[in-house]
Computed example of a mutant assay.
Amino acid sequence: MKQGKSKVEKYGTMKYLKPILTGTLVGAVVITIILMVLSLLLSLQNIPQMLITPMVLLALAVGSLMGGNFAAKLVREKGLAVGLCCGVLLFLMLLLFGQGISDNGFGIMAAAKLAIALAFSAIGGVMGVNTKKRRK
């Protein structure tokens, strides 16, 4: 009997789980950093209230793109699916944390956030798979 990895570990979900979770964490960290910079900017400048929502959506887009890209670079295959998984997890994190702050439910803004997270993380996943490794 072989002592190697089982087929499930080698070809199944275990191969993708760690990169997807890592990419989701990278995306969440990027979103957090961008939101911290934006909150500093908001406290120092007189920025209109109507610009806050687009700034939050921009942070979500950049974080989703970075998370999907990072995860796909780790896996080096199935970038669209890996990116979409990262986008779903990022959205679920935002939805859960948002429910802790306000009880708005799933409305138009949540649907927009889901669409942005899915679109940009999928784009990031495709970009991550299609970039070549650097040679030293």
Rank of each mutant, 00 (worst) to 15 (best):
K73L: 09
L95V: 11
C86M: 00
L92T: 15
A111S: 15
C85G: 04
C86E: 02
L89E: 05
A117K: 06
A122H: 05
E77D: 10
I108C: 00
M109C: 05
I101Q: 06
L118I: 12
K73D: 06
G98Q: 01
S102E: 12
S102W: 09
G98D: 06
E77H: 07
C86Q: 04
G100I: 05
A81I: 13
S102Y: 13
F120I: 12
L89C: 09
N104H: 11
F91P: 02
G100K: 11
L95I: 08
L95D: 09
A117G: 15
A71R: 03
A81V: 13
L80G: 02
S121F: 06
L94R: 08
V82S: 05
L92P: 01
G107Q: 12
S121H: 08
A81P: 00
F106R: 07
R76E: 07
I116M: 06
F120D: 03
C85F: 00
D103A: 14
A111K: 15
L84F: 10
I101G: 03
G107N: 10
L80C: 00
D103E: 11
G100T: 07
M109W: 11
G100C: 08
A72T: 03
L89Q: 05
N104K: 11
L74R: 11
L74M: 14
G83D: 02
Q99N: 15
D103S: 14
E77K: 08
A122M: 11
L95A: 15
L90Q: 06
A81D: 04
F106A: 06
G107A: 15
A112S: 10
L94E: 09
I101A: 11
K78W: 01
L92M: 12
F70D: 00
V75E: 05
I101M: 09
G105S: 11
A71E: 04
A71S: 08
L96N: 07
M109V: 14
N104E: 10
D103I: 12
N104T: 14
N104Q: 09
F97S: 15
L94S: 14
L74P: 05
A119T: 13
A122C: 08
N69R: 03
A122G: 15
V75Q: 04
S121E: 10
S121D: 10
K73G: 06
A115E: 03
